[in-house]
Amino acid sequence: MQKYKGYFLLLIITILLIIMIITSDKQLNEYSHNLFYMDTYINVKVYSNNKIKAKKVLNEVEKIYEKYHQLTDRYHAYDNIKNIYYINNNTDNIETITIEKELYDIIKYGIDFYEKSNGLLNINIGNVIDVWKKYRESKNGVPTYEELKSSGSINVSDIVLLDNNQILNNHPNIDLGAIAKGYVTQIVGNYLKEQGFNKFLIYAGGNVLVGDHYKNDVYKIGIENPTKSGDIYKIVKSNNMAVVTSGGYERFYEYEGNIYHHIIDPNTLMPPNYMKSVTVITNDSALGDALSTTLFLMSIEEGKEYIKQFNNVEAIWYTNDNTIIKSDGFDKYE
């Protein structure tokens, strides 16, 4: 027996090491899903050991994005779905339209934010957006104030939500572009948490929403320089945060040396020119998206004051002179 002691020891060490190798692989696996909805490339990553559940959840995530994409689409109709296009273009002689709860809620979110943004975030600005879109696509000229003004009403009070998910058939021209991406991203984030996936990263263009980090202490999110693609001008670090940028590389066009953004000031009916981009960091992607648009529509000084009323909201501005201005509590993300 004594003779085999050495071999026995070797065998045990070998088995232990093999077990360690196998268990060390229990590092979380990354499951990634690429989507293209709302005119944006969307990437959702979850970290888990449960492959079947992760795949199932990611499929469910795709359904959520697809559904909201269809509901908020103002250019296309879909079978059996009463979406924004349906509401905006309804010529039926009916008093009210019953819509799905999801759409009702997101419209309500937009209307509520109209007050909070002092009238800057206007979801009934579709008429003006359409005029600008026409010019942006032809890249030829700039609309006059009169043309924009005569394109139709932009009063948010035209959108009248009633009880039981009904909306008054009042022919508004709703455009949810300013809030939809952030709103649905937050819905997806909530869904992932409900399903037990606390470790996730959602990338949706100007919107990033993260849960807990899969390996390190915190996520590190780079904010891109709006004047130079690929150049990171700031890195923010935290878990469970939403980082949302307005400006930057979003849709715009250039005419006679001026840049015309797709974000429109409801007061001037023109794209604002206060800054090159603004990034909001908060814990709610819907709020982040709405606030980043709002901040893009006011001067940096006003914006710094404005966000003080919100808890847990910080912002960083990239000015027209290529300098960087941070909100007072921004340090905690650095």
Binding site: L201, V208, V210, G222, S229, I232, I235, V243
Partner: peptide, 9 residues
């Protein structure tokens, strides 16, 4: 790459 988890643009 760069140690960053994502980039907003």
């Amino acid at each position: 790459s760069q140690d960053l988890d994502a980039i907003v643009r």
